[in-house]
């Protein structure tokens, strides 16, 4: 047996490129791990983009210049609380910062410009309950009023510290707003407008809100229908007759009676197995078997 060389075999031609490694079978486990991590990163990116888009929309909020932060319209309030739900407190801070750069009050439901500090100095004197304090000019010019500050921070403390892409399930709990017309937001939808396709424009702001709220309601119903597997244009599976608006009381007319067995089953009751009486023990004059026979013949007749 010749001695085995310990040197590397040098038969590979130096100029030849190394063999392509692409045709090696993909290690399934490695692929899965890579995909898993890629999906996590992708999820994170979408969550971050969602937050950014929400901030961009909330920059120009509310749309109407005479909206009242104390009594926001229900559609505005709903959109705001939905947009803010995936935020972290830091994201909310940057929303406030961005709104301030655009010279608006930091509270997204307030259309007013931010407050101006009394002088241009960088530090300002402020009278508080415990004497005069020196504060940064910037911190004075965040809100339009103390009321807005309270309402905005009321939202901030409810935000989830956990980033949106790590949250399990939906975006946690609902954000509650500090509003004075809360009954309007919690109540069922306002009455539908009589004629939504009216030629003249809705007379005032409220009617628009009602229409918007109902439009949102219809959209939600359509989404639900798709979720149930219905096709648009078909009859809805959700039966409206199941719910009746009239409540009928069941009034007892006769005095209650103890339950009793029907007369003909009394003598067979000892044969019953969990209420069922086996056929062998039934009386012979019941013609169940005959029925079956007839059925078979009928079927034959149809075939012939």
């Amino acid at each position: 047996m010749p001695p085995k060389s310990i040197l590397k075999k040098t038969t590979v031609v130096a100029n030849q490129p190394p063999p392509a490694t692409d045709d090696r079978p993909v290690n399934k486990k490695h692929l899965e791990v890579a995909l898993h991590h890629a999906n996590i990163i992708e999820q994170r990116k979408t969550a971050e983009r969602e937050v950014l888009d929400s901030i961009i929309t909330l920059l120009d909020f509310p749309e109407s210049p005479d909206a009242d932060p104390r009594r926001p319209s229900s559609s505005d309030a709903l959109r705001f609380s939905q947009a803010v739900a995936p935020f972290q407190p830091a994201d909310y801070d940057s929303l406030i910062e961005e709104r301030n750069i655009a010279a608006k009050c930091g509270y997204a439901l307030c259309p007013r410009p931010k407050r101006k500090a009394p002088s241009a100095a960088r530090k300002q004197f402020v009278d508080t309950s415990h004497g005069v304090q020196i504060v940064d000019k910037k911190s004075l010019e965040v809100w339009c009023s103390d009321d807005c500050a309270r309402r905005a921070l009321y939202v901030k403390v409810q935000l989830n510290e956990e980033p949106a892409w790590l949250r399990q399930g939906s975006h946690g709990d609902k954000i509650e707003l500090m509003v004075e017309n809360s009954e309007e937001h919690h109540k069922a939808l306002p009455l539908r407008l009589k004629e939504p396709a009216d030629s003249k424009k809705p007379a005032d702001r409220e009617e628009e809100d009602v229409a918007a709220a109902w439009a949102a309601h219809d959209d939600a119903l359509a989404d639900l229908a798709i979720e149930r597997g219905e096709k648009p244009g078909r009859l809805s599976k959700a039966n409206k007759d199941l719910i009746q608006d009239k409540i009928r009381e069941r009034v007892a007319a006769t005095p209650p009676e103890p339950p009793s067995l029907p007369k003909d089953t009394i003598f067979q009751s000892h044969m019953a197995i969990e209420g069922h009486i086996p056929r062998s023990s039934k009386s012979k004059d019941e013609n169940d078997d005959d029925d079956d026979g007839n059925d078979a013949q009928d079927w034959d007749k149809h075939m012939g």
Partner: peptide
């Protein structure tokens, strides 16, 4: 020359 540059200016 703005003091702060945010989303608005960038857009």
């Amino acid at each position: 020359g703005d003091e702060n540059v945010g989303l608005k200016q960038l857009r």
